[in-house]
Design a protein around this nucleic acid. Structure first.
Length: 262
DNA sequence: TCAGCAGCTACTCCTCTCCT
DNA sequence: AGGAGAGGAGTAGCTGCTGA
C-alpha cells in the first residue's frame, strides 16, 4: 500500500505534477484500522473518501472518535444502522449535497467481476459498475440543509393511517408530509435527503430495537399470526405496522419526525 | 415530437450469523 | 440443527429532461 504526499506547487505551473507528488510506502496493507493509518488520520483536517461499505459503521466510528470533519460515500440503507442513525438524530452527521437519488457509476479494476445489475465498459476497456442508493455522508454544513421542505398536502385520516403499535401517522412519500399535522409522523428514510433540522425534529427510527427504544409496542396478540407470516420478510418486534384493507402491513423502515414549526 | 436514458423515489428477499 | 435476527458496493418502476 502507498500514500501520496503533495506539499504544494513548487514550479508555479498551478498543477500538481507527478514529480511534485511524493509516493510513500506504508509498512502494512493500508487497513484504516492500522496504527500507521491512524497516525495519518490524526494529521487530517478533512477526510474525503469512499470507504468499504461493509465496514461503514466501523469507519464512521473511527472518524467520530478522532473528531474529524469528513465527506464520505455510503449506501442510503446505512441510515438504518443503529449507530449511524443515532448520529443523524444527534445532528452529528447528515447527508451531503449533490447526490439525493438514483445510482452512481464507479470505476472498478480490470479483474473485477461484472455481476452488478448495471455496468459499462468504455472505449478504452475500462470497467464501470452502477451502484444504487449512493449518498454522501458528512458533518460539513451546506446551504441546502437549511432550506425548508415545501409542504402542500392536507391531512386526512383516510390518506394517512395510524400505526397499530405507535402513536403516529404513516406517510409514504416525503413530499406528501401533511402541512398542518402536529403529531408524530413516520416517513421514508429518503426524508433525510430533504431534512432541515430547523424545520423538523427527528424522534427516532421505527424498526427493530431502535423502534422499541422510542416505545414502538410489540405486535398485538391478534396480529402475531400475521407477524409469523411476515417474519419471512424480516419484520420483527419494534417495526411499525398498520392495518390496510384488513391486513397487517409492515412498511419499509420509517423515521419518526415532528414538525417544529407548528 | 419522441425515444433514450439519467435521475427520482420507494422498497426486497436472500444469505450469513448467532442463539437456543 | 433449526429458527430468528440482521443487513446488504441492492432492485424496480416511473418521470422528466435532452437532443436529434
Amino acid at each position: 500500500a502507498i500514500y501520496l504526499e503533495y506539499e504544494g506547487d513548487k514550479n508555479n505551473n498551478k498543477v500538481p505534477d507527478l514529480e511534485e507528488i511524493g509516493i510513500k510506502y506504508l509498512k502494512g496493507d493500508g487497513d484504516f484500522r492500522s496504527d500507521e493509518c491512524i497516525e495519518l488520520l490524526k494529521q487530517a483536517d478533512v477526510v474525503v473518501t469512499n470507504p468499504p461499505f461493509s465496514l461503514f459503521r466501523e469507519y464512521v466510528a473511527q472518524l467520530v472518535k478522532y473528531e474529524k470533519k469528513f465527506l464520505i460515500i455510503g449506501n442510503v440503507n446505512a441510515i438504518t444502522y443503529k449507530e449511524i442513525f443515532k448520529l443523524f438524530k444527534d445532528n452529528k452527521l447528515w447527508l451531503g449535497a449533490s447526490i439525493h437519488s438514483g445510482d452512481r457509476e464507479f470505476g472498478v479494476p480490470d479483474d473485477y467481476p461484472l455481476k452488478a445489475a448495471g455496468y459499462r465498459i468504455d472505449n478504452n476497456g475500462r470497467k464501470f459498475i452502477r451502484v444504487k442508493g449512493v449518498r454522501w455522508y458528512t458533518n460539513l454544513d451546506y446551504k441546502e440543509r437549511h432550506e425548508d421542505l415545501i409542504l402542500y398536502k392536507k391531512y386526512s385520516p383516510e390518506e394517512y393511517p395510524t400505526y397499530e403499535n405507535y402513536d403516529a401517522i404513516n406517510v409514504n412519500k416525503t413530499k406528501e408530509i401533511p402541512m398542518e399535522f402536529k403529531g408524530h409522523m413516520g416517513v421514508p428514510i429518503t426524508f433525510l435527503d430533504k431534512y432541515n433540522p430547523d424545520q423538523f425534529e427527528v424522534i427516532g427510527l421505527g424498526i427493530s430495537n431502535s423502534g422499541k427504544e422510542i416505545g414502538v409496542k410489540p405486535y398485538k396478540e391478534e396480529h402475531k399470526l400475521y407477524r409469523k407470516n411476515i417474519q419471512k420478510r424480516g419484520a420483527v418486534d419494534g417495526d411499525l405496522y398498520m392495518i390496510t384493507n384488513g391486513e397487517v402491513n409492515v412498511p419499509y423502515a420509517r423515521i419518526i419526525i415532528r414538525n417544529k414549526r407548528l
